[in-house]
Design a protein around this nucleic acid. Structure first.
Lengths: 194, 194
DNA sequence: GTCTATAGAATGATAGAC
DNA sequence: GTCTATCATTCTATAGAC
């Protein structure tokens, strides 16, 4: 017995109750400000407006919250990726995917950038099969199945460049402008290099 | 009374005793693994091989350690920057500066990337006058004094791209290869865009 | 510069009532 | 799903001896 293991982040994220989603939102906010290690159950409980025990009822462990934050944040990327994979490896589908990724991170700057920065979240992504799979598929589609070293450096730089949405240098640039400029730079990295 | 305020990171870093430098090295290692928030005085003391009280004698507060880590890590960047500023805003000096920055981060991957990732360290950089000054001067030299929004997006992307040395995608690429490939990509971002 | 010892607060986590 | 109450542990920080 035991529940069927989920095969997608969407499936996994749909298992959360409204109360749990509320907690995840609050946790994400706190993670962005203090890092995962610097965020306690008490801080999360205070932010939600309940007691620690309630949060424990919802999640049991701190890792479970971190994982939930990860899932909810990566869902839009998964949707965009699945669509691109259905369309096959055309230039058009890669263009569309890149635009959707940029759109997602820009309209969700502070949140998604947290995932790329925090060492704890970073490690969780590496250890989580679904999340790891998502990223390798994402960059496989964006950059092609090239495994040579300079292709991997390009993938790393592209990944980092997307994460630049959260950089202080661009903090006061509005979403529309940032989306356009960032898309411009990342399109160069994706299509005109190598 | 009161010591003269230091006017450079070099000056500030030179004030630390050998014992303090040893502590800073250990702290940097732990910060990279667990984040600043996830690293305690006890963990640092254990890593150094002394008691918490000894660490407190050296630094007094956790923030002082974090600041010291920041200073020691940014010193090589400061040296390279000062050299470039002495040479003036030529293409050659920008090329040299970029190469030195890449060299520094590649030969020091895990450490320097920590600074770019951790939310706590990130905030400290924004709050610290010397550190903030260092970064704005660095990107002013690299990208010119252009303050228009797409120049700032490029600066953010360049900064993020440099931080890609720590990306898991390139973890198993040797230093020489990584240095060459990364320099190639960042040179494009620096000189052939905009 | 290092130690032992300690204070006082906060931590992750659990039990049991509502 | 939430509460109060409590546990052992760990945390930052300090005092005083060597």
């Amino acid at each position: 017995m035991g529940a069927d293991p989920p095969t997608s982040l969407r499936e996994r994220a749909e298992r959360y109750s409204p109360a749990q989603r509320h907690t995840v939102d609050a946790a994400l906010d706190l993670f962005a400000d203090h890092g995962v290690g610097g965020t306690s159950f008490q801080m999360i409980a205070d932010a939600v407006g309940v007691t620690k025990a309630a949060i424990y009822h919802q999640f049991g462990t701190k890792d479970a919250i971190v994982l939930a934050v990860l899932e909810v944040q990566l869902r839009p990327l998964e949707s965009a990726l699945e669509e691109a994979e259905r369309e096959g490896p055309t230039v058009q589908s890669r263009e569309t995917l890149l635009a959707q990724v940029i759109e997602t991170v820009v309209s969700n700057r502070r949140a998604l950038s947290t995932l790329q920065r925090d060492p704890v979240l970073f490690r969780l992504i590496e250890e989580d099969e679904l999340a790891r799979d998502l990223f390798s598929r994402l960059f496989a589609v964006l950059l092609g199945d090239d495994v040579r070293h300079h292709a991997r450096v390009r993938a790393a730089v592209l990944s980092a460049a997307i994460g630049a949405v959260a950089h202080p240098f661009v903090a006061d640039i509005d979403n529309d402008t940032l989306r356009a400029d960032l898309l411009d730079v990342t399109r160069t990295l994706t299509f005109k290099l190598g």
